[in-house]
Amino acid sequence: MLQLTPQTIRIVDVYDDGSHARHFTFEPKGFVHDNPISIGQFFMLTLPGVGLAPFTYTSIPDKTGRFNALIRNVGHLTEKLFSLGKGDVLGYNGPFGRGWPVGLIKHKEVLIVAGGCGLAPVAATIDYLINNGYSKSVTLLYATRDSASQVLKKERTRWSSSIKLIETLEVGGDSDHSGLPTQYLSHLLNKDDQYPDIVLTCGPEAMMMAVANSCVDLGLKTSDIWMSIERRMRCGVGLCGHCYVANSYACQQGPTYRYDEYLALESKTVAFEKDKVLFQYC
């Protein structure tokens, strides 16, 4: 039988990151993870009396079981979460879903395109690649609206010495680095030596789709592009129904989808003309 009841975790560290985001370090209370957690999986946090929501691991549990999450204050639940501090106890279920294809990206030219808080779900991947000696083949394109909304400053500073890191700003960047990430992509993917074998993207859904489509236009195969899809998850175990993508549930078959798989799922339902809204970074 599935276990829907949360286990308890304790907040052991908190610090602000960017204008509306905060780092939390959690420690399991009275349990250990049975199975190893793969990078890119997610977990559910329960705030007693408030509700629950999905978050991704910015770092997977260390030897002591501690793990990190970068959380953006976007709604009712996160607002309450931000009022908590060290020592407070929360409910935790996880890990859930499918992570990034870590096995596939070793020894490959990897391009990671992250937008806004979408940097958090790929952070552990970047650390993994660096720590395992693959840093030379990693390029990170990090796109945000402005410099105030950039997150993971500490990590980016650390990474900048070992991987190729490009940052673009929609507002306020220099001429090479302003605008949308897709504009920079065409620039980046024109150089043969930079041509990636695999692309991982994470950010607002509209951005990921735009990035994926640009990559395909620039010659990549849909099967070489991976993305992490956000959905309003309620259970993590394929029961509550909220995170459907056609006949798959993002909490199980996702949140990481290979683009061709995602397109195949999308093609099962009718393509509606979406209201034209430019994406906003989270």
């Binding site: 976007v74 639940l77 607002p204 956000e230 959905r231 909220h242 459907y244 993508v245 906003q280 989270c282």
Partner: peptide
């Protein structure tokens, strides 16, 4: 609201 996310994005 079934799929509406906290950010306002709604698939």
């Amino acid at each position: 609201g079934f799929q509406k996310e906290a950010s306002g994005h709604n698939p």
